[in-house]
């Protein structure tokens, strides 16, 4: 159940654009009658990270990998890890990010829980014969 990180003809499958929302800690906010705000922290881990990956103009055979993976993990049901390329510390989904890779992970840095699941189905837009742009929206779960 590996998230697609390798092209069909070899080489890393690297996104052309990436956005990351760092989620939040489970906090509940109450407003008192005098206007004062009270916040209750319910958990010690940050959650609900959102990672959006765009793979622009990739070959259709590579775009298909995302559809296959979406099926493998039964849509938005099962979780998965964004893995490194075997035998390296390169994570193709994080390429270009020069900060700590954990910062873009699904879990709070330094704590367990780095799983993502699909927030919705991958969007595949055909841009030319044999070429498609794939947008994948993931959400971090503990």
């Amino acid at each position: 159940m590996t998230f697609p990180i390798t092209k069909t003809n070899g080489g890393d499958l690297v996104p052309s654009a990436r956005t990351f929302e760092s989620g939040d800690y489970p906090v509940k906010t109450y407003k008192a009658q005098n206007g004062a705000e009270h916040r209750v922290l319910y958990g010690s881990n940050r959650t609900n990270m959102k990672l959006s990956l765009t793979y622009a103009n990739i070959r259709d055979v590579d775009a298909e990998k995302f559809l296959d993976h979406y099926d493998e993990v039964q849509g938005t049901f099962k979780t998965f890890v964004l893995e490194n390329v075997e035998g390296t510390d390169i994570n193709p989904t994080c390429v270009g990010w020069e900060g700590n890779q954990d910062a873009l992970g699904a879990g709070t840095p330094g704590t367990p829980g780095k799983d993502y699941r699909y927030e919705g189905p991958p969007q595949v837009a055909q841009v030319a014969s044999g070429r498609s742009t794939v947008t994948v929206n993931l959400i971090g779960v503990l």
Binding site: P15, Y55, N57, V95, W97, V127, R131
Partner: peptide, 18 residues
Amino acid sequence: LISTKTLSQTDDVFTPVG
């Protein structure tokens, strides 16, 4: 041409489409 440049690449990479 369409761009097939990815994150971390410095120079443009293209594929002809029409």
